[in-house]
Write a protein that binds this DNA or RNA. Structure first.
Lengths: 337, 337
DNA sequence: ACAGTTTAGGCAAACGTTTGCCAAACTCAA
DNA sequence: TTGAGTTTGGCAAACGTTTGCCTAAACTGT
C-alpha cells in the first residue's frame, strides 16, 4: 500500500535524532535541551541546538513521549448526545480550557448507553489519556472499575454513581427552589413540574427543590408532578405536557427541569391552544443561548456552562496530583423573560 | 511525583510481553495471533494465546502501535465554534461514523481563527492523526502546507481555499434557489437576502443562488441584499435586519443563509413589531433540529447533517488509499412551516 | 533414505522519547 | 602534583508494537 512519496506518513517531521545528527550531539542532549534542562550542556551547545530546533520547527513527538512516560496530553470527554446544546456548551468550554493547558480533548459520544461508555473508557485508557471528563455519567462496570482504581475522573452535571468524587455542576435543589420563587412571584397558584420517565439524580434534585420550596411558600398548594417518556428531553417534555390533560386542566406554571423539556412543552401547548406565557408560565433550567433570540416566552435558570471548562480542568489537575478534588458548585441565576 | 500504588499509570494493563511470558511463547507470536495471522502458529498455540488474550482482556496498545506503524486510529476534526448547532450536528454524526470505523475523534475548536487552526494542524500532525476533517476552513499557512503535502483532508461545508479537494456539503446555489422558489410560492414580492459582513464562499453561493432564481422567476423584481456585522451569525442576522430600515420598509420575504441569522432577524422583527410570519416571511438554511419545536415560524432548507458523518468517513478512507475523493453533494429539502 | 518444502516460531530492529548512570575533561585548591 | 568536585555529554534501557528475516523441525514425495 505504499505511495509515491518516500515518506508520506502524516507525522513525518524532524525527530530528536535528526536534530542530534545535524548538531553533532547525542539524542539525549537534544532531548534535555528541548525540555529546558539548559544546565546540562555548555552554552555553546545549547545555543546551537536551540537554533536547530527553531529552524526545523522541531516539536517532541507526543506519541513517543506517551509511550515512554505514559503522559499523553490527552483527555477524554464522555458525553451523551452532543445534540443537546447544553452538552455542546460544556464541550466547547472544556475544549478551550484544556487547550490553554496544552492538552487536547477526545470527544466520545456515549448516547447514554452503558456499553458504549464502557467501550470508550477502555479505549481511552489504553491510549494513556490523562483523565476523564464524564458528563451525565451512567452506571457501568468499567466506570465502577475506573473509580475503584482512583483514575482521575471529573463528573459533570450528574454525580458519580459510585460514591462522592470530583464533581462540577450547580446546586440543583437550589435551582429548583429559585424557579419556584420565580413562579410564585408571577402569581402562579396551580403549579406543576414535569420530568423524564427515567429520573437522574440531577433532575430529581431540581424537581424536589422546586416542589419543596413551592409548597413551603404557598401553604395548601400541591405541586403536580408529571412524568413523560421519550428518548430525549424534547420528546419527554412533549409527552409529559400531553399527560397534563385538556387545556382547562393545565397548570398555570410549570417547572421544566431542562430547557429542552420546556421546548417540548411549548409545542404541546401550541397544539392545544394553550398560550405560553399567558395561560401557562413555564420556567426552564439551563438557559440555552438561543433562548434570548427565539424563546422570549421562556424564563430559565442560567447554568454557567462557559465557566465549567476552567473548573473542570482545575479539578483534573488536582486529581492528577493526588489531591482529592471535591465538589464545585457554580452559581446560577434566574433569567426572567 | 510517585504515588502509593506501584503502577498507577492509567494505561497500565496487559501488554504483548505479559501475554507472551504467560503463554511461554515470544512476543511476535502473540502479536501475530492478536492480529489475526492464525496460520503463523500451530492450532494449539493459537488456542492458548487466544484464551489468554480473552482472559486478560488484552487489547493492543494504540500508542505503541502508532509509534511503530504511524497508524493511530485518530482523526482530528477542526471546527469553528461548537456552539453553532449545525457544527454540533456535524461533530456528532462524524464521531459516530468514526467509531464504527474503530477510530476516535479529537475535537478542535478553532474559533474561526487562522492561528489556532494552524496550531491545531501542527499538533495533530505530530500525533500521527490519520486524517483531518475541517469544517468551514479558513485560509492559513499550515493548511496550505497540508494541502500541498497531500495530507488526507476532508473539507466540510466550505471548500478548500487552496484548490479543489475532498468536500462534503450541499449544493448551496441550489439551496438558495429552492428558498427562492419557496418565497415565490408564498407570494413574496419584495424580497431581500441578508448575510454576514465577511462572506464565505458557502454563504455567497446561497445568496447568489437565491438572487438569481428569484429575479429570473419574477421579472422586474430586485432582491435587496443587506449585510450585517457580528461575531456570529446571530449577531450578524440581527445587525443585518437592523439595516433593513423602519418596519414599513421591511421586505415581505427574507433569505437567511443560516438558521442562526434567521434567529437574529426574528429578534429584530420582534423589537420592531414586525410580525413573523405575516409581515415578513423568513426562510432559513440548515433546519436546526430545534426549529420543529420552538421556531414554527421558520421554514428552512434542511441540510442532512446526520448523513454527513458517514460520507466524511468514506471520503477519508478513499483519501488514505490514495484515491482522489471528489466532491460529495448531499440532497437537501425545504421544510415548510 | 534423501532432497525439498512447508510449518512454527523466535530474533532483532525500528518507531521517538526520557532518564539513570557512567565517564571523560575540566577547575580549583592545597 | 594530586585529589576532589564540577561540567558536559554520551550510552543504553525502557515504553508496546509490528514485521522482515532466519532456523529448526516436521512433513512430503519419490
Amino acid at each position: 500500500m505504499s505511495r509515491i512519496e518516500p515518506d508520506r506518513r502524516l507525522g513525518a517531521r524532524a525527530s530528536l535524532a535528526d536534530i542530534a545528527a545535524e548538531a553533532g550531539v547525542s539524542v539525549s542532549t537534544v532531548s534535555r535541551i528541548a525540555n529546558g534542562a539548559l544546565d546540562r550542556a555548555s552554552p555553546a551547545t545549547v545555543e546551537k541546538v536551540q537554533r536547530l530546533i527553531a529552524e526545523r520547527g522541531f516539536r517532541p513527538n507526543p506519541v513517543g513521549r506517551s509511550l515512554r512516560g505514559g503522559e499523553s496530553q490527552l483527555v477524554a470527554m464522555l458525553a451523551p448526545n452532543l445534540d443537546n446544546p447544553a452538552m455542546a456548551a460544556i464541550a466547547a468550554s472544556t475544549e478551550a480550557a484544556l487547550r490553554d493547558a496544552g492538552t487536547v480533548m477526545i470527544l466520545c459520544d456515549t448516547h447514554d448507553r452503558p456499553d458504549l461508555q464502557d467501550e470508550y473508557l477502555r479505549a481511552m485508557r489504553s491510549r494513556f489519556v490523562e483523565g476523564f471528563v464524564v458528563v451525565s455519567a451512567v452506571a457501568s462496570p468499567e466506570l465502577e472499575a475506573a473509580v475503584g482504581r482512583g483514575d482521575p475522573i471529573v463528573f459533570v452535571n450528574r454525580r458519580s454513581p459510585y460514591g462522592g468524587l470530583a464533581f462540577v455542576g450547580i446546586d440543583n435543589r437550589k435551582a429548583g427552589a429559585d424557579a419556584a420563587d420565580h413562579l410564585l412571584a408571577r402569581g402562579v397558584r396551580r403549579p406543576a413540574a414535569i420530568h423524564p420517565a427515567e429520573l437522574s439524580s440531577t433532575i430529581r434534585d431540581r424537581v424536589e427543590g422546586f416542589v419543596e420550596r413551592f409548597e413551603a411558600q404557598a401553604p395548601g398548594v400541591r405541586v403536580r408532578v408529571v412524568a413523560g417518556a421519550g428518548a430525549n428531553h424534547l420528546d419527554a417534555g412533549y409527552a409529559a405536557a400531553g399527560a397534563l390533560g385538556p387545556s382547562e386542566e393545565w397548570p398555570d406554571g410549570v417547572l421544566c427541569p431542562s430547557d429542552l423539556m420546556a421546548y417540548g412543552l411549548y409545542r404541546a401547548a401550541l397544539e392545544r391552544g394553550v398560550r405560553v406565557p399567558g395561560d401557562c408560565e413555564p420556567v426552564g433550567i439551563d438557559d440555552n443561548a438561543l433562548n434570548a433570540w427565539i424563546a422570549p416566552w421562556l424564563s430559565s435558570v442560567r447554568v454557567p456552562y462557559p465557566a465549567f471548562g476552567p473548573r473542570i480542568v482545575e479539578c483534573l489537575r488536582s486529581l492528577r496530583q493526588g489531591e482529592p478534588a471535591g465538589e464545585i458548585l457554580l452559581p446560577h441565576a434566574l433569567v426572567r423573560r
